[in-house]
Amino acid sequence: MSLVRIVERDRRDVLGEGPLWSARDNALYWTDILSHRLNRLSLDSGAIAGWVFDDYLGWAIERDAGGFVLGLGRRFVRFDPETGTTRTIASPETDRVENRINDAKADAQGRIWAGTMSINCTDPTGSFYRLDTNGAATRVDRPYAIANGPAIAADGSCLLHTDTSLATIFRFDIHDDGSLGPRTPFIEFQPEWGNPDGMTFDAEGCLWVGCWGAGCVTRFSPEGQRERSITLPASQITSCTFAGPDLDRMFVTSACDGVDEPHAGALFEVDPGCRGLATQLYRG
């Protein structure tokens, strides 16, 4: 396989995000936030399917009991892909009409960690939430202008989260009760690195980050040192995830919103030269 492959399909994502590997379906799921769309790529056949919703779609996370949880508008909702039905779990920001949910990950305890952000991408009106398995959504940190890229350590001891507008990835200790320790700067991006967007850990404890504006995914050591980058033919790289039975394939999302580039908004596959961590599911 070449280092970078463009997945062939008949559309581009306005704002591709939230790639999710499903071992259950042997498929990759990802969203187009601004088109309100959930995409599905079968790794068996290469077929691509999709569902369209009535609001911004930040992400999809598998439920252990079947189906998905979606970050839809300002709500956490259950989604059954067989029937197309949705049911609201929690609406933590009913009073924040200027916000939307943006990015999320599940942890080994079956909880979801998700950020919200301002629709205009400038006002620091967003927050960071924990969705527990009983359906309760608790604010754990704020403020954020562009909340992005939760990544959770394999041992569950800490998580990383970013405000893309600040070009900084922050580190939080996770306490036994689900509360977080102080927000501590972990990686501060240099201007030539772009801005940190979605991210994921690999099996060696290194962090892979989609670099918005820099046209690459970059690997950082467990200590936060920049190791190497894979260049991609689109500037607005949004997120990445490991996929496949051996978790040795990496898929990367991008956006075409506001740029005129031939491959902006494409879904890419790259060879990361390492393996990822198993996808965690929501247990509520």
Rank of each mutant, 00 (worst) to 15 (best):
M1E: 15
E82F: 12
R78D: 15
A278Y: 00
T279R: 06
A243P: 12
G181K: 10
A167L: 02
A167W: 03
R283M: 09
S45T: 15
T133P: 01
M199L: 04
L57K: 04
I169Y: 01
N120R: 11
T88W: 05
R142H: 15
V97D: 11
R75G: 05
T138I: 15
H175G: 11
V270M: 02
D103P: 05
W51Q: 06
Y282V: 00
Y56S: 02
E17W: 07
Q109F: 13
G213K: 07
P185K: 05
M1W: 06
V14W: 07
F76I: 04
R171K: 13
S118P: 06
R11N: 14
C240P: 02
I48E: 12
A27I: 04
Q109T: 03
G50L: 02
R183I: 15
A108R: 14
R40M: 13
S235L: 00
P150V: 02
L166R: 10
D197C: 01
L70R: 03
G16C: 11
L160H: 07
I48Y: 01
T85G: 10
N195P: 04
T88N: 08
A167D: 15
E17N: 02
T218G: 03
R11G: 13
M1C: 12
G265C: 05
T200K: 00
R5H: 14
I237A: 02
D13L: 03
L267E: 03
D95K: 12
G244M: 05
E269F: 07
G213A: 04
L232V: 11
A90N: 10
S157Q: 13
L38D: 07
L57R: 04
F268L: 06
M117K: 09
G73D: 09
G135V: 08
R75L: 00
S254G: 08
L70C: 05
I152Y: 09
A90S: 13
P196Y: 06
R75P: 00
D257S: 09
G284H: 06
L43M: 12
T85V: 12
D176S: 15
F251W: 11
I112Y: 07
Y29L: 12
T168Y: 03
W193T: 08
P143E: 06
C216L: 15
P191S: 08
K105Q: 02
R78A: 11
A203S: 14
V69K: 03
V97K: 12
V140C: 10
A214L: 01
R12P: 01
R96L: 10
A114F: 11
T164P: 14
D132Q: 08
L281K: 05
L3T: 03
F242E: 00
T86F: 06
F68L: 09
G273K: 01
V14Q: 10
P81C: 13
A147D: 13
A114R: 09
D107E: 07
D173Y: 13
I146P: 01
E82N: 10
